[in-house]
Design a binder for these strands. Structure first.
Lengths: 118, 118
DNA sequence: TTGACATATCAGCCGCCAGTGATATTTCGC
DNA sequence: GCGAAATATCACTGGCGGCTGATATGTCAA
Protein backbone atom coordinates (compact mmCIF):
# COMPACT_ATOMS: atom_id res chain seq x y z
CA UNK A 1 0.00 0.00 0.00
CA UNK A 2 0.91 3.64 0.17
CA UNK A 3 1.50 4.76 -3.36
CA UNK A 4 2.44 7.98 -1.66
CA UNK A 5 4.65 10.72 -2.91
CA UNK A 6 6.70 10.86 0.26
CA UNK A 7 9.64 9.24 -1.45
CA UNK A 8 12.21 11.97 -0.95
CA UNK A 9 10.59 14.82 0.79
CA UNK A 10 13.32 16.87 2.39
CA UNK A 11 16.42 15.32 0.94
CA UNK A 12 17.58 18.16 -1.28
CA UNK A 13 16.40 21.66 -2.09
CA UNK A 14 14.50 20.21 -5.02
CA UNK A 15 12.02 17.38 -4.81
CA UNK A 16 12.09 14.60 -7.37
CA UNK A 17 8.99 16.15 -8.87
CA UNK A 18 10.73 19.52 -9.05
CA UNK A 19 13.73 18.10 -10.81
CA UNK A 20 11.48 16.20 -13.18
CA UNK A 21 9.71 19.41 -13.95
CA UNK A 22 12.98 21.19 -14.59
CA UNK A 23 14.00 18.50 -17.05
CA UNK A 24 10.58 18.72 -18.60
CA UNK A 25 11.32 22.32 -19.36
CA UNK A 26 14.26 21.12 -21.42
CA UNK A 27 12.47 18.12 -22.87
CA UNK A 28 10.60 19.95 -25.58
CA UNK A 29 12.33 20.46 -28.94
CA UNK A 30 10.89 23.94 -29.30
CA UNK A 31 12.02 25.08 -25.86
CA UNK A 32 15.38 23.43 -26.31
CA UNK A 33 15.82 25.06 -29.70
CA UNK A 34 15.14 28.40 -28.07
CA UNK A 35 17.71 27.74 -25.36
CA UNK A 36 20.27 26.60 -27.92
CA UNK A 37 19.62 29.72 -29.96
CA UNK A 38 20.26 31.83 -26.87
CA UNK A 39 23.56 30.17 -25.98
CA UNK A 40 25.71 32.50 -28.12
CA UNK A 41 23.96 35.57 -26.77
CA UNK A 42 20.70 37.47 -26.22
CA UNK A 43 18.08 37.61 -28.95
CA UNK A 44 14.77 39.34 -29.46
CA UNK A 45 11.61 37.32 -29.94
CA UNK A 46 11.62 37.99 -33.66
CA UNK A 47 15.18 36.79 -33.94
CA UNK A 48 14.30 33.67 -31.96
CA UNK A 49 11.38 33.04 -34.28
CA UNK A 50 13.66 33.45 -37.28
CA UNK A 51 16.34 31.20 -35.78
CA UNK A 52 14.05 28.37 -34.73
CA UNK A 53 11.29 28.44 -37.31
CA UNK A 54 8.66 28.45 -34.59
CA UNK A 55 5.48 30.43 -35.01
CA UNK A 56 5.43 33.72 -33.15
CA UNK A 57 2.68 32.84 -30.65
CA UNK A 58 4.26 29.49 -30.03
CA UNK A 59 7.68 30.97 -29.35
CA UNK A 60 6.16 33.63 -27.13
CA UNK A 61 4.30 31.01 -25.17
CA UNK A 62 7.40 28.93 -24.59
CA UNK A 63 9.37 32.01 -23.63
CA UNK A 64 6.76 32.82 -21.05
CA UNK A 65 7.11 29.34 -19.65
CA UNK A 66 10.92 29.38 -19.70
CA UNK A 67 10.88 32.77 -18.06
CA UNK A 68 8.59 31.67 -15.27
CA UNK A 69 10.79 28.66 -14.67
CA UNK A 70 13.85 30.86 -14.39
CA UNK A 71 15.66 29.38 -17.36
CA UNK A 72 15.67 32.56 -19.41
CA UNK A 73 15.36 36.23 -18.54
CA UNK A 74 13.77 38.88 -20.71
CA UNK A 75 14.49 42.58 -20.76
CA UNK A 76 12.15 44.96 -22.53
CA UNK A 77 13.76 47.40 -24.92
CA UNK A 78 11.20 49.54 -26.63
CA UNK A 79 8.77 47.28 -28.42
CA UNK A 80 11.40 44.55 -28.49
CA UNK A 81 12.20 42.12 -25.72
CA UNK A 82 15.67 40.65 -25.46
CA UNK A 83 15.89 37.23 -23.93
CA UNK A 84 19.01 35.57 -22.57
CA UNK A 85 19.89 32.43 -20.64
CA UNK A 86 19.29 33.07 -16.96
CA UNK A 87 22.40 31.29 -15.75
CA UNK A 88 25.71 29.93 -16.97
CA UNK A 89 24.95 26.51 -15.53
CA UNK A 90 22.15 26.10 -18.03
CA UNK A 91 24.80 26.20 -20.71
CA UNK A 92 26.79 23.65 -18.72
CA UNK A 93 23.76 21.42 -18.46
CA UNK A 94 23.24 21.53 -22.22
CA UNK A 95 26.91 20.81 -22.81
CA UNK A 96 26.82 17.86 -20.44
CA UNK A 97 23.78 16.50 -22.22
CA UNK A 98 25.59 16.71 -25.54
CA UNK A 99 28.53 14.92 -24.01
CA UNK A 100 26.30 12.13 -22.77
CA UNK A 101 24.68 11.80 -26.17
CA UNK A 102 28.07 11.34 -27.70
CA UNK A 103 28.83 8.67 -25.11
CA UNK A 104 26.70 6.11 -23.32
CA UNK A 105 23.35 7.67 -24.12
CA UNK A 106 23.87 7.26 -27.83
CA UNK A 107 20.85 4.97 -28.10
CA UNK A 108 18.39 7.62 -27.08
CA UNK A 109 16.99 8.27 -30.50
CA UNK A 110 16.34 4.56 -30.91
CA UNK A 111 14.17 4.44 -27.80
CA UNK A 112 10.61 3.99 -28.92
CA UNK A 113 8.91 4.40 -25.56
CA UNK A 114 8.35 8.03 -26.37
CA UNK A 115 9.02 10.53 -29.12
CA UNK A 116 11.01 13.74 -29.02
CA UNK A 117 7.56 15.20 -28.38
CA UNK A 118 5.47 16.48 -31.33
CA UNK B 1 6.76 29.11 -44.55
CA UNK B 2 9.08 26.24 -43.98
CA UNK B 3 8.25 24.90 -40.59
CA UNK B 4 11.09 22.52 -41.28
CA UNK B 5 13.17 20.58 -38.82
CA UNK B 6 16.49 21.42 -40.42
CA UNK B 7 17.29 23.90 -37.69
CA UNK B 8 20.55 22.44 -36.46
CA UNK B 9 21.33 19.38 -38.45
CA UNK B 10 25.01 18.63 -38.13
CA UNK B 11 26.07 21.09 -35.46
CA UNK B 12 26.87 18.63 -32.68
CA UNK B 13 26.82 14.85 -32.24
CA UNK B 14 23.29 15.17 -30.94
CA UNK B 15 20.46 16.90 -32.75
CA UNK B 16 18.17 19.22 -30.85
CA UNK B 17 15.56 16.49 -31.05
CA UNK B 18 18.02 13.98 -29.62
CA UNK B 19 18.87 16.19 -26.70
CA UNK B 20 15.20 16.90 -26.10
CA UNK B 21 14.60 13.18 -26.05
CA UNK B 22 17.42 12.66 -23.58
CA UNK B 23 15.91 15.25 -21.27
CA UNK B 24 12.54 13.65 -21.75
CA UNK B 25 14.01 10.50 -20.32
CA UNK B 26 14.76 12.45 -17.17
CA UNK B 27 11.54 14.43 -17.22
CA UNK B 28 9.31 11.75 -15.75
CA UNK B 29 9.05 11.56 -11.95
CA UNK B 30 8.98 7.78 -12.03
CA UNK B 31 12.08 7.49 -14.20
CA UNK B 32 13.83 10.18 -12.22
CA UNK B 33 12.95 8.47 -8.95
CA UNK B 34 14.50 5.29 -10.32
CA UNK B 35 17.67 7.13 -11.29
CA UNK B 36 17.87 8.82 -7.91
CA UNK B 37 17.39 5.49 -6.21
CA UNK B 38 20.29 4.09 -8.22
CA UNK B 39 22.70 6.92 -7.40
CA UNK B 40 24.04 5.30 -4.21
CA UNK B 41 24.51 1.95 -5.94
CA UNK B 42 22.98 -0.91 -7.92
CA UNK B 43 19.56 -2.26 -7.01
CA UNK B 44 17.37 -5.11 -8.17
CA UNK B 45 13.96 -4.45 -9.66
CA UNK B 46 12.23 -5.46 -6.45
CA UNK B 47 14.37 -3.09 -4.45
CA UNK B 48 13.64 -0.31 -6.92
CA UNK B 49 9.95 -1.03 -6.61
CA UNK B 50 10.25 -0.89 -2.83
CA UNK B 51 12.30 2.30 -2.91
CA UNK B 52 10.10 4.22 -5.32
CA UNK B 53 6.63 2.90 -4.62
CA UNK B 54 6.03 2.24 -8.29
CA UNK B 55 4.08 -0.79 -9.43
CA UNK B 56 6.20 -3.65 -10.67
CA UNK B 57 5.10 -3.55 -14.33
CA UNK B 58 5.47 0.19 -14.37
CA UNK B 59 8.97 0.11 -12.95
CA UNK B 60 9.94 -2.66 -15.32
CA UNK B 61 8.65 -0.71 -18.26
CA UNK B 62 10.59 2.41 -17.30
CA UNK B 63 13.71 0.36 -16.72
CA UNK B 64 13.39 -1.06 -20.19
CA UNK B 65 13.18 2.44 -21.56
CA UNK B 66 16.07 3.76 -19.48
CA UNK B 67 18.15 0.78 -20.52
CA UNK B 68 17.46 1.29 -24.21
CA UNK B 69 18.39 4.93 -23.85
CA UNK B 70 21.69 4.01 -22.22
CA UNK B 71 20.96 5.72 -18.92
CA UNK B 72 21.01 2.55 -16.85
CA UNK B 73 22.55 -0.87 -17.34
CA UNK B 74 21.11 -4.14 -16.08
CA UNK B 75 22.96 -7.31 -15.23
CA UNK B 76 21.03 -10.53 -14.75
CA UNK B 77 21.84 -12.47 -11.59
CA UNK B 78 19.69 -15.55 -11.27
CA UNK B 79 16.09 -14.49 -11.40
CA UNK B 80 17.11 -11.06 -10.21
CA UNK B 81 18.37 -8.22 -12.36
CA UNK B 82 20.66 -5.61 -10.90
CA UNK B 83 20.43 -2.18 -12.43
CA UNK B 84 22.95 0.64 -12.10
CA UNK B 85 23.55 4.07 -13.58
CA UNK B 86 25.27 3.65 -16.93
CA UNK B 87 27.65 6.56 -16.50
CA UNK B 88 29.06 8.88 -13.87
CA UNK B 89 28.03 11.91 -15.87
CA UNK B 90 24.39 11.03 -15.29
CA UNK B 91 25.05 11.60 -11.63
CA UNK B 92 26.72 14.90 -12.53
CA UNK B 93 23.71 15.91 -14.59
CA UNK B 94 21.36 15.21 -11.68
CA UNK B 95 23.61 17.14 -9.32
CA UNK B 96 23.73 20.09 -11.69
CA UNK B 97 19.97 20.07 -11.94
CA UNK B 98 19.69 20.16 -8.18
CA UNK B 99 22.11 23.06 -8.09
CA UNK B 100 20.04 24.96 -10.62
CA UNK B 101 16.88 24.33 -8.65
CA UNK B 102 18.53 25.83 -5.61
CA UNK B 103 19.50 28.85 -7.71
CA UNK B 104 17.88 30.64 -10.61
CA UNK B 105 15.45 27.88 -11.53
CA UNK B 106 13.72 28.07 -8.18
CA UNK B 107 10.43 29.04 -9.80
CA UNK B 108 10.05 25.81 -11.69
CA UNK B 109 7.37 24.34 -9.47
CA UNK B 110 5.33 27.49 -9.90
CA UNK B 111 5.27 27.15 -13.67
CA UNK B 112 1.78 26.18 -14.68
CA UNK B 113 2.41 25.49 -18.35
CA UNK B 114 2.89 21.85 -17.55
CA UNK B 115 2.86 19.51 -14.60
CA UNK B 116 5.54 17.25 -13.28
CA UNK B 117 3.81 14.82 -15.63
CA UNK B 118 1.45 12.12 -14.31
C1' DT C 1 -3.33 60.81 -34.34
C1' DT C 2 -2.81 57.15 -37.24
C1' DG C 3 -0.93 53.18 -38.93
C1' DA C 4 2.49 49.63 -38.72
C1' DC C 5 5.24 46.69 -36.09
C1' DA C 6 6.65 43.59 -32.07
C1' DT C 7 4.97 40.87 -28.63
C1' DA C 8 1.57 38.70 -25.59
C1' DT C 9 -2.78 36.25 -24.63
C1' DC C 10 -6.56 33.09 -25.35
C1' DA C 11 -9.62 29.10 -26.66
C1' DG C 12 -9.85 24.72 -28.67
C1' DC C 13 -8.47 20.50 -30.79
C1' DC C 14 -5.50 16.38 -31.45
C1' DG C 15 -1.93 13.11 -30.45
C1' DC C 16 0.70 10.89 -27.14
C1' DC C 17 2.61 8.57 -23.24
C1' DA C 18 2.07 6.95 -18.23
C1' DG C 19 -0.45 3.93 -15.42
C1' DT C 20 -3.15 -0.26 -14.70
C1' DG C 21 -4.35 -5.27 -14.81
C1' DA C 22 -3.74 -9.51 -16.67
C1' DT C 23 -0.56 -12.66 -18.44
C1' DA C 24 3.85 -14.75 -20.18
C1' DT C 25 8.60 -16.21 -19.23
C1' DT C 26 12.36 -17.54 -16.55
C1' DT C 27 14.58 -19.31 -12.42
C1' DC C 28 14.93 -20.81 -7.85
C1' DG C 29 13.81 -24.04 -3.58
C1' DC C 30 12.02 -28.42 -2.37
C1' DG D 1 9.05 -32.19 -11.69
C1' DC D 2 6.27 -28.73 -9.02
C1' DG D 3 4.94 -24.52 -7.17
C1' DA D 4 6.42 -20.02 -6.03
C1' DA D 5 8.94 -15.93 -6.78
C1' DA D 6 11.09 -12.23 -9.82
C1' DT D 7 10.81 -9.97 -13.90
C1' DA D 8 9.06 -8.86 -18.51
C1' DT D 9 5.39 -8.04 -21.92
C1' DC D 10 0.97 -6.54 -23.72
C1' DA D 11 -3.65 -4.08 -24.82
C1' DC D 12 -6.16 -0.51 -23.23
C1' DT D 13 -7.47 4.03 -21.69
C1' DG D 14 -7.55 8.88 -19.81
C1' DG D 15 -5.51 13.20 -19.04
C1' DC D 16 -2.40 16.59 -20.35
C1' DG D 17 0.39 19.71 -23.19
C1' DG D 18 1.85 21.69 -27.64
C1' DC D 19 0.30 23.85 -31.93
C1' DT D 20 -2.63 26.87 -34.44
C1' DG D 21 -5.45 31.02 -35.63
C1' DA D 22 -7.44 34.91 -34.09
C1' DT D 23 -7.11 38.72 -31.20
C1' DA D 24 -5.41 42.00 -27.63
C1' DT D 25 -1.88 45.11 -25.83
C1' DG D 26 1.72 48.14 -26.30
C1' DT D 27 5.22 51.02 -28.72
C1' DC D 28 7.54 53.26 -32.36
C1' DA D 29 7.55 56.41 -36.79
C1' DA D 30 5.61 60.04 -39.57
Amino acid sequence: MSNDTDLQEQVTPGTVADRAKLFRGLADPSRLAILEALRPGPLSVGQIVAATGLSQPNASNHLRCLSECGLVAGEARGRFVDYRLADLRIDELLALATELLDGPARGVDACKSYRASP
